[in-house]
Every structure is written in C-alpha cells, then in structure tokens.
Design a protein around this nucleic acid. Structure first.
Lengths: 190, 190
DNA sequence: TGAATTGGTATATTAAATTTTACTTTTTTC
DNA sequence: GAAAAAAGTAAAATTTAATATACCAATTCA
C-alpha cells in the first residue's frame, strides 16, 4: 500500500522521520512509550518515522513538545565539519570596495555566517532583507556604528548587536583603521 | 462552529497563521491567488491564516515552498534590537577559569551566541551537546586548536570552523596569549 | 456609481489522517 | 533457547483536513 507523496524533491516527510527516529532512539525510548507519552497512536509515530506519513501540525507539535525540542528541529538536514580560513594577504587593502562580506557557512538556508571588512571611514547601507530575518553582528576588531530604525548604536571591538534585518540599516566605520566584522543571518525568526 | 485546538499554550497554529499572512501581504498577493499558485484551496489558506486550522505537513510544505521560504520560517516568533557589550576590565585576567563563555543572545531556542575566552595554554573539553546541534566557532583574536572526531584543526585569527556539536570536542589555546572566540550554536540542524 | 477584487461565511462532499485492535516478525535479554 | 520487548503489518472504523461551490459584505478602482 504505497502512499502518495504530495511534496517534491525536498521530501520533508522523509527528513522529519529520520530526525524523529534519531531523537527518539537517542532518548532510548520505544515507539509505544513515546506514542503514549505524547498522546498519539503508535501507528502514527511509526509511519512518521518511516517517512510514509503526512502528519498534521498538531501531531508535529505534540511530538516536538513531547521531546522538548523546538518544532523546527524536526524539519532539516545538515552535514559535518568544515573550516573557513581568512584568505591571507587578501585583496582587502587593494580592494576599493568600501565594504566586503565573504560567506563563511550556509546552513540549510536557516542560518548564514559571513566575515566582513569595512574600510576606514567607510559606510555601507544594507537594504531590508526578507521578512523574518534576524541579524547578529559582532565586531572582531575596530569600531562600528550601526544605524537601524533611525537610531545609531556604537560598538567597540568584541561588542555584538542583534536586530531585525527586515528593515534598512547602515554600517559605518568611524575609525581610521579597518574594521573586521562577523555576521550571522538567521532566517528562523519572526 | 468553533474548532477544537489540540495544542496547548504554544498555539503554533496561531503563529503559523500570523506569519503566513505577514509573508503573503508582504508579497502583495491575495489569498485566492496564493492558493491557486501553491495548489491548495482558498479556504485552507484562509483558515490557516486565521489560526483556525490544523494543516498537514504537505500543505505546510506547499506554502513554504510556494513562498520560497524555509519551512521553519513559518513557525516562530521574535522581538527587536539588543546589544551585548564586552564588560570592560572583566575578571578575565583575574579569573582562574581556563575557559569562560558569556552568552550574548538567545534566539527562541533556535540559535545562541556566545563570547568565549580561552587562557594561554588553556584546554577545554566540551561534552557532546544535544542531537542536531551545529556549532560555529570563530577566532576573533589569538589561536585555537579544535579537536573533533579525533582530528585536530588549527585556526588562526579570523578563521572559522563548523562542526556537529553532538559529539565531544576539545578546544585548546596553543599560544601564550589570550584567545577570544565567538560561538554560534544552532539547534535547527540535523 | 458600478464593476471587480478581496476577505470572509455556509454547506455538503471527498480524501485522508488518526485511532483501535489484533496479529506477525525481529531483536534483545536473562 | 525461551521470554519479553520492540518493530512492523493488516484491516476496519472514526475523525477531520481539504476541496468545491455558491453566496455575502467591504473595499478598491476605473
């Protein structure tokens, strides 16, 4: 009795299954126990774990809630270890771009990391990002002024700021030396 | 004709509704158009937006897919702007802890940011975190050696590393000066 | 003002998720 | 190797998500 999979390549159903099983086995409890614990039928859990199901939001919530994990933790995939090194002797000094951001990691479209360089006295205006984006900026060295919602915030080295990225915001380097930044863009937030 | 809400306080259904409407209105398209575009009935979209629905995973996927947003972006909430400053003249030097991590931001349990200090010649062994955790470490200043899965990786300043946090890993500062680190812990990944 | 669009309501129908029960097979454990 | 627990199968019953259609009120717009 094959089941129609309404979704395309992504196969969310398959992943939620893999993830759920991983979490459950990790906790060392059986399907039956989990099912009773969270108040759904054993068969439902079984089918979900096998990727042969199309669970309702309420069921998904019950599972996430019962396992005490964020609901979103059931819906993704990811890989292993990777390193991103600062390209030594980069075109930093050569570049006449005021602002440069080089991508470090991209994690399944949910989170992105960048390394940023802002020239002395440089300014950069960022358009509003997609709705639901949260931005985390950390000053690795130098100084930074962030202007968002009409307010300016000054940061020294090792300071961090967080703000909703779905509005225009401006970065400025008020100092006379290069500012090195660290960006985290998170797409999960609303 | 009131509808039973199977979930508790969390009210995921309400949030997915708010979020969906936000995305849709933001795109400037009507319910009917969206519905046809993604291949679900108008009434379904309407009910979801009003929080009076219990959509199936396939429908949730269709919506996220149709709007070209990560499926998880439909299921959360978040707030505004906040800054975390390095406490000047901290107990860094005074502290005889080899490793100190101070929390910067916590974003709805999905992502956490830390600032870390690792003393010269210091070593710190981190237990395996919860399953599905991805860790991003950036060297803001100094040097760092990360050992994960039996392999050691050496990082200089401004280098970054990413690895699955669900296994034990060791941080070491091979240099004779303080190492300043930046941690991102992401819980969405698997 | 009048037509068209949009959000929302009402109802009946269809498709399918979830439950229940019982039974089989595999794996674990003593 | 027998007992017990866990995973998986089968089928029928129940519940409910999703669709389809028509209709209403408010808003937009030409």
């Amino acid at each position: 009795m094959d089941i129609e999979k309404p979704w395309g390549e992504g196969d969310v159903g398959k992943y939620i299954g893999i993830n759920l099983r991983q979490f459950r086995v990790n906790k060392g409890i059986s399907i039956d126990v989990l099912a009773k614990q969270i108040g759904v039928s054993k068969l439902t859990v079984l089918n979900i774990e096998r990727g042969e199901a199309n669970p309702t939001l309420s069921v998904i919530w019950k599972i996430a809630n019962g396992l005490k994990i964020p609901i979103t933790a059931l819906l993704s995939i990811e890989s292993d270890v990777s390193i991103s090194r600062k390209k030594d002797g980069m075109k930093l000094i050569s570049s006449n771009d005021v602002f440069v951001a080089e991508p470090l990691f991209r994690s399944h479209g949910l989170i992105e990391l960048y390394r940023g360089y802002l020239q002395p006295r440089g300014e950069y205006l960022s358009e509003a990002h997609q709705l639901g984006v949260m931005e985390f900026v950390t000053v690795m060295s130098g100084q930074l002024t962030v202007e968002v919602d009409g307010e300016a915030h000054h940061l020294d080295d090792y300071d961090s700021i967080r703000f909703k990225g779905d509005r225009p915001h401006k970065y400025a380097n008020p100092s006379s030396s290069l500012t090195m930044l660290h960006f985290v863009i998170s797409y999960n937030n609303l």
